[in-house]
Simulated assay, not measured.
Amino acid sequence: MIDPPDIVAVLAALNFVAFAAFGIDKAKAEAGKRRIAESTLLGLALIGGTIGAYAGRAAFRHKTRKQPFSNELHGIALLQAFALAGLLGWTLAG
């Protein structure tokens, strides 16, 4: 079984990577260089980096007006919220 401190450490690392990816992608966009794929940014959010993705969007003011991207990121966050609520309910129900 995975220990809670390990889960927290993995999630912290994922969120840091997601945050950094948004910063790197913004810098690449401004420099006119090859960018990080949106699927990669969304994938980082999907596997647990949602908070870092939202923080990166806000901090770097990046991909805030891209409607399809925003909708997909919101969908991932909503899916994770429902999954977390379900897990919490299942745990509390015993």
Results as ranks from 00 to 15, higher is better:
24 I>K: 06
25 D>G: 10
26 K>R: 13
26 K>F: 07
27 A>E: 01
27 A>K: 05
28 K>G: 01
28 K>A: 08
29 A>R: 00
29 A>Q: 02
29 A>D: 00
30 E>N: 01
30 E>G: 03
30 E>H: 05
30 E>K: 07
31 A>K: 07
31 A>S: 05
31 A>F: 03
33 K>N: 12
35 R>L: 01
35 R>W: 01
35 R>Q: 00
36 I>R: 03
36 I>D: 04
36 I>A: 00
37 A>L: 10
37 A>H: 09
37 A>E: 08
38 E>K: 06
38 E>G: 07
38 E>H: 04
39 S>V: 13
39 S>G: 11
39 S>C: 05
39 S>Y: 06
39 S>I: 09
40 T>S: 11
41 L>M: 08
41 L>S: 06
41 L>D: 03
41 L>G: 07
42 L>C: 09
42 L>S: 07
43 G>N: 00
43 G>Q: 01
43 G>M: 07
43 G>A: 04
43 G>K: 04
43 G>P: 00
43 G>D: 04
44 L>K: 00
44 L>E: 01
44 L>Y: 01
44 L>I: 01
45 A>C: 06
45 A>G: 06
45 A>E: 03
45 A>D: 03
46 L>H: 00
47 I>R: 01
47 I>T: 04
47 I>C: 02
47 I>V: 10
47 I>F: 05
48 G>I: 02
48 G>A: 06
48 G>W: 05
50 T>S: 14
51 I>F: 10
52 G>T: 05
52 G>A: 05
53 A>T: 00
53 A>H: 04
54 Y>P: 03
55 A>L: 09
55 A>G: 05
56 G>H: 03
57 R>A: 14
57 R>F: 11
57 R>I: 12
57 R>H: 11
58 A>F: 13
58 A>H: 11
59 A>C: 12
59 A>P: 04
60 F>E: 02
60 F>W: 07
61 R>V: 10
62 H>Q: 12
62 H>R: 10
63 K>F: 14
63 K>Q: 12
63 K>G: 13
63 K>V: 15
64 T>L: 15
64 T>E: 12
64 T>A: 10
65 R>T: 15
65 R>G: 13
65 R>S: 14
65 R>Y: 12
65 R>C: 10
66 K>L: 10
67 Q>C: 05
68 P>E: 04
68 P>A: 09
68 P>L: 02
68 P>Q: 07
68 P>T: 08
69 F>R: 12
69 F>G: 06
69 F>I: 09
70 S>E: 11
70 S>R: 15
70 S>C: 15
71 N>Y: 14
71 N>P: 04
71 N>M: 15
71 N>F: 14
72 E>P: 00
72 E>N: 12
72 E>T: 15
73 L>T: 08
73 L>Y: 05
73 L>Q: 11
74 H>Q: 12
75 G>H: 06
75 G>K: 09
75 G>S: 06
76 I>E: 06
76 I>P: 05
76 I>H: 11
78 L>R: 12
78 L>E: 05
78 L>I: 15
79 L>R: 04
79 L>Q: 02
79 L>V: 07
80 Q>T: 04
81 A>P: 11
82 F>Y: 13
83 A>Q: 07
84 L>Y: 11
84 L>I: 14
84 L>C: 13
85 A>Q: 13
85 A>C: 14
86 G>L: 13
86 G>N: 10
86 G>T: 08
86 G>D: 08
